[in-house]
Amino acid sequence: MIDLTVNGNRMVFDGDDEMPLLWYLREDAKLHGTKFGCGIGQCGACTVHVDGQAFRSCVIPMRGLKGAQITTIEGLVKMDELHAVQKAWIEEDVAQCGYCQAGQIMATVDLLKKYPNPTDQEIDENHTNLCRCGTYDRIRKAIHRAADLMKAGN
């Protein structure tokens, strides 16, 4: 029996504890914003926050998540207000197909905690999620814009 918190809601899981968190979120918790891209932690489409840090949920087995606080893309909105990173993503018109973008956003929220004012080089070295549509130029602009929005108190 594993108890965990997902987007502020207490949850209990008693299934196969080898199952990665991704499938718990998508199928049990019915939170389909977190995406399956590779299953081996290489692409980042499944990025969520575990205890405040970005992780690739496709390679985290449920058994390690006792008492964990999980935040998914659905939990990023607070009191109907988009997170600054989400706002920046809309303002820079980042998405093409959009499939990887929840993961990109979750990775960026974490990146901006560590680098509140990131340089291009810091983004290059720390943001590793794959976007098959190639929206990286706009992702980079959106990361800078989100940093500005957060400094301005958004």
């Binding site: 389909h32 303002e91 959009g98």
Partner: peptide, 21 residues
């Protein structure tokens, strides 16, 4: 006139339904 994706809000909040969802 340049218009942002109408689907942007649903995409950045994870609400958008792809076939897989």
């Amino acid at each position: 006139r340049g218009k942002g994706l109408k689907a942007a809000h649903d995409i950045v909040t994870g609400k958008m339904e792809f076939g897989i969802d």
